[in-house]
Simulated scan of single mutants.
Amino acid sequence: MALYFIEYDLRKQRNYQALYDELASFGAVRVLESMWCFKRVNTTTVNLRDHFKRFIDSDDGIILSEVSDWASYGTQRSPKDLK
Rank of each mutant, 00 (worst) to 15 (best):
M1W: 09
M1P: 08
A2N: 15
A2F: 05
A2P: 09
L3A: 01
L3H: 02
L3I: 12
Y4A: 00
Y4F: 14
Y4S: 03
F5V: 07
I6F: 05
I6Y: 03
E7G: 07
E7L: 13
Y8W: 09
Y8S: 03
Y8C: 09
D9V: 04
L10C: 03
K12F: 05
Q13I: 02
Q13G: 09
R14L: 08
R14D: 03
R14G: 02
Y16T: 01
Y16L: 04
Q17M: 10
Q17H: 14
A18Y: 06
L19P: 01
Y20L: 09
D21C: 07
D21L: 08
D21R: 14
E22P: 00
E22V: 00
E22G: 02
E22S: 05
E22N: 08
L23M: 10
L23C: 10
A24K: 15
A24C: 12
S25F: 06
F26D: 11
F26P: 02
F26N: 13
R30A: 04
R30G: 01
R30D: 01
R30P: 06
L32F: 12
E33D: 13
S34C: 07
M35P: 02
M35T: 14
W36M: 07
W36E: 00
W36L: 05
W36G: 02
C37G: 00
C37H: 03
F38P: 03
F38D: 11
F38R: 04
K39R: 15
K39T: 15
R40M: 11
R40P: 01
V41P: 04
V41T: 15
N42W: 00
N42Q: 10
T43R: 02
T43N: 08
T45P: 04
T45M: 01
V46Q: 10
V46A: 09
N47P: 04
L48A: 06
R49C: 12
H51Q: 14
H51S: 15
H51Y: 13
F52C: 07
F52S: 03
F52R: 01
F52I: 13
K53R: 06
R54Y: 07
R54F: 04
R54W: 02
F55S: 02
F55T: 00
I56G: 00
D57I: 03
D57N: 14
D59R: 06
D60L: 08
D60N: 08
G61S: 10
I62W: 01
I62M: 11
I63L: 13
I63Q: 03
I63C: 15
L64C: 05
L64D: 00
L64E: 03
L64N: 02
L64H: 01
S65P: 06
S65F: 13
V67N: 06
S68I: 11
S68V: 14
W70Q: 06
W70L: 04
A71S: 15
S72L: 11
S72K: 14
Y73E: 11
Y73S: 15
G74K: 10
G74A: 09
G74F: 06
T75H: 00
T75L: 09
T75V: 08
Q76M: 12
Q76N: 14
Q76G: 11
Q76H: 13
R77D: 06
P79D: 11
K80P: 06
K80Y: 08
K80E: 15
D81Q: 06
D81R: 09
L82W: 04
L82K: 05
L82S: 14
K83I: 14
